[in-house]
Computed example of a mutant assay.
Amino acid sequence: MRTGNIPFRFDMSDLLSRAKQRFGKHVGEVTLNLPFVSFAVSPKSKERKVAQELVIRLADRRVLSAWECCDNCIDDALNSLREIRGILVDKQVELADLRDGPLYLLVEAMTLGIRQFLTFEELLNSGNEAPPHPRFGDFHRPSDVRQAYFDGLEVLRGHISRCLGQVAAIGGIDAPKDGLIVNYQGDWQIAAYQAPALTAEK
């Protein structure tokens, strides 16, 4: 069951600040939208190619759209997220000569989101004061921990989907820019992000 709660917030302050500094005054052929900031870029041919590959490899990953129901599903999803993070890191290596480019920034946004979600998930299971919870069938996490995980994963899916929409734009792919994954499209879920200083000071 999904409650729509936001159990944690992404901290992208440094990344968003760098995006504004690098691209804030650029005039480009592709407009990208991130939480709190939009900018125009002119992708290199290599960035277009890598962006297309990323969309192909990630668009149909089950973990980005599946409906978990038990702890075994959660464990499988966590493993899949780690695999996706591995793919993204490989692409960062491939883009090492374009570290200041827009695609590297978007890939970094996705890896950062996954890392912060995994940290959140670890914290959910680190409470030493929690009473022992006996395993029953496929359920070995307390129900409140399981629910917080489900809600957190929904937030992460929305984040990755909208990032992939921007990646698709760089790749020149005809796909919704507001989210590549069905059911995770629309405006950025601003409440799921810590406001960077450049916004908070206004």
Rank of each mutant, 00 (worst) to 15 (best):
R99H: 06
A96F: 03
L16A: 13
A148V: 02
G172M: 05
K177H: 07
I160D: 03
E94M: 14
A148D: 03
V93H: 14
R9Y: 09
D14I: 10
R85D: 14
A148L: 10
E68I: 12
Y149L: 07
A148W: 00
R135V: 02
S13R: 06
L123C: 14
F136G: 03
F39T: 01
C73H: 10
L34M: 14
W188F: 12
I56M: 12
I56V: 13
V37L: 09
F136V: 12
E94N: 11
G137L: 02
P131A: 14
N5L: 09
D75N: 12
Q166Y: 01
H140Y: 15
E83R: 07
P43N: 10
C69F: 09
V55K: 07
D60N: 02
C163N: 13
G101P: 03
G137K: 10
Q147H: 01
I160W: 07
V27N: 04
A51L: 03
L198G: 04
V37E: 14
T3L: 13
S38N: 12
L153F: 06
H133P: 07
V182A: 06
K177I: 01
T31A: 02
A77L: 10
L153Y: 03
R141M: 11
T119I: 09
V155L: 08
L54F: 01
I84P: 01
D151E: 13
R18Q: 15
V93G: 10
K91F: 04
A51K: 00
D11F: 01
L81C: 09
P196V: 04
A130W: 10
F23N: 00
R22K: 13
V37K: 11
E29S: 10
V145P: 01
D11E: 05
K20D: 05
L164V: 00
L95M: 15
R61Y: 00
N72G: 12
D11L: 02
S161G: 06
S143V: 04
H159V: 03
A200S: 14
V37Y: 11
A19C: 10
R61A: 06
A200C: 07
L105G: 02
R157L: 15
S143H: 12
P134A: 09
G152R: 08
A96N: 03
V30K: 04
V50M: 04
F136P: 00
G101S: 02
A197P: 00
N5F: 13
L153T: 11
G152P: 02
T111C: 00
D178C: 11
G165C: 08
R22L: 14
L106A: 09
E108Y: 01
R18D: 15
L15W: 02
L16S: 11
Y149M: 03
P132G: 11
L164H: 00
V55Q: 02
T119N: 01
V167I: 14
L105P: 01
N5T: 08
D14H: 06
I160C: 08
A130S: 04
A168P: 03
L103N: 05
S161N: 06
L78M: 05
A195D: 10
N125S: 11
L198H: 15
Q116R: 07
S126R: 12
G101W: 00
L81Q: 03
L64V: 08
S38G: 14
H26D: 11
E201T: 15
T3C: 01
W188G: 04
G113F: 04
A130T: 04
Y193G: 09
F120Y: 12
A96Q: 11
V155F: 10
D75P: 00
D187C: 07
D71E: 07
Q52N: 14
R82N: 06
N5Q: 15
M1P: 06
